[in-house]
């Protein structure tokens, strides 16, 4: 059981009209790993993410998860169902609930774990009150772990940029995932904020027993954090390996820097 990869993507393709945004990409992630997906702009990384999380339905291929509750195929499921299965994501361009407070943003993440229906919340049954209080406490606890507790009652849109990125992670963590998909978590951060982020991601993996797949352009972050790297270009997987291997891979250098005429 422990050998089976938690996320298994086989021959995934996504075609928009004549454009093959993702072309036969396969990928495996083992439990507890931090894996990075890199590639030049427009390589299809975010499309790949959207296929896994149900925003798009892939044209071809299979997305499969293996957890302690058994394995399941995620193709064609709705985003909220996929989230329920234990995959949580953040967004490249921040998509917080801007006019809600920081705590409420995290409380939304706990939505799935709440059982009470409309009627019991209108009647304020005892069970419902206990549940609501628990949501508030749990959410605050998550904020404390991520280090955002000083912003509890602030509106999400009033937070500094780095804090907004962290709040996205907090909100995703609130859904209680086993796999966290981070789409450019360090985009637009200053070096200090990036360092904090690296520390946060490592801490999350250790303390929360979580597997992480991230897309990132910040190479220093990718090289320090990830254990394995997948490289895509024009929708195709061109290389895979440890950070060291990727650094010296000719294909990768070609994709990023272009071909050397003399070579």
């Amino acid at each position: 059981m422990s050998d089976a990869p938690v996320l298994e993507v086989n021959d995934l393709s996504m075609v928009f009209g004549g454009l093959r945004a993702v072309d036969n990409v396969s990928l495996n992630i083992k439990k507890g790993e931090i894996v990075a997906l890199i590639g030049p702009n427009g390589a299809g990384k975010t499309t790949f993410f959207n296929c896994i999380t149900g925003v798009y339905i892939p044209t071809h291929g299979e997305v499969k998860i293996n957890t302690s509750e058994g394995s399941a195929v995620l193709n064609g499921l709705k985003p909220n169902v996929i989230n329920e299965k234990g995959l949580a994501r953040t967004f490249q361009n921040i998509r917080l609930f801007s006019n809600m407070t920081v705590l409420e943003n995290v409380m939304i993440g706990r939505h799935q774990s709440l059982k009470s229906g409309i009627l019991s919340s209108v009647l304020r049954t005892k069970k419902n009150r206990i549940e609501e209080q628990k949501v508030i406490d749990d959410s605050y606890e998550i904020l404390r772990k991520i280090g955002l507790e000083m912003y509890v009652n602030e509106l999400a849109c009033n937070l500094p940029y780095g804090a907004q990125r962290r709040l996205e992670i907090a909100r995703a963590m609130a859904t209680n995932p086993f796999l966290l998909l981070l789409d450019e978590p360090a985009a637009g951060m200053n070096p200090q904020e990036t360092n904090d982020l690296v520390e946060l991601i490592e801490r999350l993996r250790k303390e929360e027993d979580i597997t992480i797949l991230l897309i990132e352009h910040d190479m220093s972050l990718v090289m320090t954090l990830s254990e394995r790297i997948y490289v895509v270009d024009y929708g195709k997987m061109i290389a895979t390996g440890t950070p060291e291997e990727i650094k010296n891979n000719k294909e990768v250098i070609k994709a990023y820097l272009g071909e050397d005429i003399d070579a």
Binding site: N80, F91, L96, G109
Partner: peptide, 13 residues
Amino acid sequence: EDEIACQAMGIDI
């Protein structure tokens, strides 16, 4: 606030 994020957080829209 945001329908896509809302779905990604597990809410049945």
